[in-house]
Nucleic acid binder design. Structure first.
Length: 590
DNA sequence: AATGTCTGCCC
DNA sequence: ATTCTGC
DNA sequence: GCAGAATGGGCAGACATT
């Protein structure tokens, strides 16, 4: 009764989301008709997940462990596997090409979805001494039993990189469509014109407020897709997908998009997104942008919101940014400082980096969902539900204006206040909270999105790593990438020049002669434990690196000698608002 | 006990 | 995080 | 415009190794 085979996943050659959705839809229909009890594992594997994000279950397996398992399973050295990985650019393909050398007395049982899913859970649950060996052995057992294209997909599932143009949104659509086909419970309501399309939207929306396949699959099987929103609603205690924003290039684009509607501008704080659930029974949970449970990392935040909620408040869900904060100097601290905080089972007395909550939205209050309310209403509830306390809990600074110069000025103020920029939100029109949707409703404006503004450096490529896919992603269009690759191929040198400065653990696949100049944009400059640009200028041992680096353009008009100098890089670092500490100077250059 | 490697998760 | 690409 | 797949820096924590 549980014979769904893993190689249902072998649809790499198909192109187009519609076709892929149909294929998965048919798989799901088959499972629903034949072995509905398998639908949960089928859906999880198909989503390339093992549990809801907020449950914190992780495989704890990466390329290194996979290479080790692969080497043992096919009787080869790790080095051989690594070389082949470089050739093929895909560990799954390496697995597929390797025949297991494990001598089996008997052919192992064929793999089933259930078996694979179960094994993934066993892998996730191994911990403590020798756990890495145990995880590796679980992987080997899967590889030994795998046939046809199964090794390929087992490895890719373990890497969480299916790379077949198929991911969560396609699964959700397929799930909705399959439910329409297999509807036994109720016909589509008469007002519904395109049931497949609408069923897909229903499942996506439900998943965005209740990201839990166990619950959704159970409800689909028992009551059907048209009842799904009633059975699976937003639930306090379970994280909602946080509303996201879209990048814009400048104030004029914003005025363009929000021509005749009222909007507000808020500081965009540089910290960690947090969704704080406070339930009637007094329990508190803090979730990250990606729905990870972070409660144990922020006991100070739990205390702050509990203390600063007004007495009329019995439950809430708060959307906010947690920002490192120096209470003595009343200053926001950089993200890099926040990231040094301890993460597990933190005691308030051990906290070394204080945090201020900057609150900007309220999704739930005293038993009532606010998601469907306009921002104006939600924000009023927010303001009346909490007491501000400097350095502990503050409302995000905001202003309401549609004047170009005022907004520009407000952006400058935000940057001066150590923020990344602004978030712009409508107050009435399209102003409901849309979980997970990268809708137009929220726009973000950062200096580094604006042309000719923000930090931009002229850099010389001196080393490179081989990519592992067909396309690449940090400012290189395919054509430019091809050009640069061709041009630099003739500049490859066997060893780095004696004057190159690089960390011991920096081992590029190829080194280049200094030959061309690239203009690179970044959001920030940071002190780096690995890179050595301008080493000694700002920190005696560490260099400077870029946050969110991307290629803007190649500068054929510039020679390597005209690239940004160490002095310039150090200056740019020091010029950043945060970095007005006092440090000494030293020697050297790039 | 100290150091190194790997992983997950922030941005 | 940002950016690019096929649909 | 959506969805997916590429890509970046840097930190703590868990284990493994020395």
């Amino acid at each position: 009764m549980w014979k769904q085979r893993l190689n249902h996943n072998c649809h790499k050659e198909e192109s187009g989301r519609i076709v892929k959705t149909d294929i998965v839809c048919n798989l799901l229909r088959t499972v629903i008709y034949t072995t509905p009890e398998d639908l949960v594992p089928v859906v999880y594997l198909s989503a390339n997940r093992i549990a809801p994000a907020h449950e914190g279950l992780e495989l704890g397996i990466g390329d290194a462990s996979i290479i080790k398992a692969l080497a043992e399973a096919c009787g080869r050295t790790e080095q051989q596997i690594r070389i082949q990985y470089k050739e093929k650019g895909d560990l799954g393909l390496v697995a597929k090409a390797s025949r297991s050398s494990q001598s089996m007395m008997r052919k192992p049982e064929p793999l089933t979805i259930r078996k694979v899913f179960k094994t993934f859970h066993l892998i996730a649950k191994e911990s403590g001494k020798d756990s890495q060996d145990k995880k590796k052995n679980h992987i080997k057992s899967l590889l030994v039993a795998a046939t046809d294209c199964e090794p390929l997909y087992i490895i890719r599932l373990l890497q969480t990189k299916l790379r077949i143009g198929y991911a969560e949104q396609t699964l959700l659509a397929a799930l909705g469509q399959a439910a329409v086909y297999t509807e036994e419970h109720s016909k589509p309501p008469p007002e519904i014109k395109s049931p497949f399309e609408e069923a897909a939207q229903i499942v996506k929306k439900v998943y965005s407020v209740l990201p839990d396949y166990d619950k959704i699959v159970a409800a689909l099987l028992s009551d059907g897709v048209w009842e799904l929103p009633k059975k699976c609603d937003f639930t306090p205690g379970v994280p909602v997908g946080p509303m996201l924003s879209k990048a814009t290039k400048g104030v004029s684009e914003i005025l363009n998009k929000f021509q005749d509607v009222e909007f507000t501008c808020e500081y965009k704080y540089d910290g960690e997104r947090a969704q704080i659930h406070y339930l009637e029974n007094g329990s508190v949970e803090i979730y990250s942008r990606n729905a990870e449970r972070n409660t144990g990392k922020f006991p100070d935040v739990v205390a702050a919101v509990s203390r600063l909620k007004k007495t009329t408040v019995s439950s809430f869900i708060l959307d906010c940014e947690l920002v490192a904060y120096d209470r003595a100097k009343q200053r926001i601290l950089p993200f890099q400082v926040l990231s040094t905080r301890a993460r597990k089972n933190v005691s308030i007395s051990d906290i070394k980096v204080d945090v201020c909550v900057f609150a900007f939205d309220l999704l739930y209050l005293n038993g009532q969902a606010l998601l469907q309310e306009n921002l104006r209403i939600r924000r009023e509830h927010l303001y009346t539900s909490f007491e501000e306390e400097s350095g502990f809990f503050q409302f995000a600074t905001s202003t309401t204006s549609n004047d170009v110069e005022e907004i520009q000025k407000f952006l400058d103020q935000a940057i001066d206040a150590s923020c990344e920029g602004l978030i712009i939100k409508t107050l009435h029109e399209d102003a409901t909270y849309e979980p997970s949707k990268r809708s137009l409703n929220w726009l973000k404006l950062k200096k580094d999105y604006m042309e000719n503004i923000g930090d931009s450096l002229d850099l010389v490529p001196i080393g490179a790593f081989h990519g592992r896919g067909k396309r690449t992603g940090t400012g290189f269009k395919e054509e430019v990438l091809e050009e640069r690759s061709t041009s630099l191929r003739s500049k490859v040198i066997p060893k780095p020049k004696s004057y190159y400065q690089y960390g011991e653990s920096t081992n590029p696949d190829v080194w280049f002669e200094a030959s061309e100049v690239w203009e690179v944009k970044a959001a920030d400059l940071t002190i780096s434990p690995v890179y050595r640009a301008a080493v000694g200028k700002v920190d005696s041992n560490k260099g400077i690196s870029l946050r969110f680096p991307r290629l803007v353009r190649v500068r054929p008009d510039k020679a390597p000698e005209q690239a940004s100098s160490s002095e310039q890089v150090a200056e740019m670092y020091t010029a950043q608002k945060h970095n007005h500490n006092d440090k000494q100077d030293d020697d050297e250059d790039d």
